[in-house]
Amino acid sequence: MAKTIWVLVEIEDGRPARSSLEVLSKAAHLGRAEAIVLGSAAATVAPSLGEFGAEKVYVHADPTYDTYLTLPAVDTISDLLQRQQPDLLLFPTTYDVRDIAARLSARHNLGLITDATDLRYEGEHLEVTVPWGGENVVVATHPYQGTGIVLARPKAFSVERFEGRQAEIEQLSVTLRSESQQMKILDRVEVQSDGPALEDASIIVSGGRGLGKPENYHLVEELATVLGGAPGATRAIVDAGWLPYSYQIGQTGKTVKPTLYIACGISGAIQHLAGMKGSKYIIAINKDEHAPIFSVADLGIVGDVLTILPQLIEEVKRRKAQL
């Protein structure tokens, strides 16, 4: 029998969030995907979810979910779990959903596997792939009968269209308890910035003396912009006065651990490496093939940073447009 998998779909700017749709598509491949949509915009979002793989959508259009964090959603899903036993709750990993999943797990004693990059059913058994540290990948499961929870890593799955699929829509008639209205959102503040701050950026493009002169630093900034990352710098060019101190990455300066670090014209003095070697992926472009930066790079390009950067900016733009 096909497994029933519930997916909690979040709403962003009146549309289903991309991270939710990724998970929904995956659920549709694994079995019967059923979506849960909560919040004032739930009713408008629900009909579109069939196209992304949902066979059924549970809807509760109530503004309480918009104002009060976690508990109303936990109550509603709990309520639903009293009535039906899906095989799996497959949720995206987001700020809000993490909190909901943790409480659901505790309330219903549901096994919980996080950071999944893949999952499949081997017969009756669920197998979840979870990367561990830098070296290992583990395969985990819920060792019992009944519902379990899996949180999927963002971008682990791609969004797919299920042309023509129409989801059955069920309006939930739950009454939200007043006790669940505790964590109240008083205000939402958008912090305006040109890009992410260095410390928070998941992608950093950083420049060093290999850029030659200050005028060339704009290439680093451009690449950072097209990748949606932040530009950084070595102490040498900050010292030389090309950039303010806030750009400096290193032992002195900022310590960063982005997913991707692109070092452009940086030789890799230990003082710099100390600030960025925790990055998940490191790409280095440098003329000198003996530069120490290559010793930590996942991908090292021996070449002229001034030639490569403009090409790379164009290439990234081109590929982004295709996505």
Binding site: R209, R235, A236, I237, D239, A240, A269, Q271
Partner: peptide, 14 residues
């Protein structure tokens, strides 16, 4: 050596 390597880069005298 470390300070001077940085210093030489800083005054752009490599």
């Amino acid at each position: 050596i470390m300070m001077f390597e940085d210093g030489v880069k800083g005054v752009e005298a490599e």
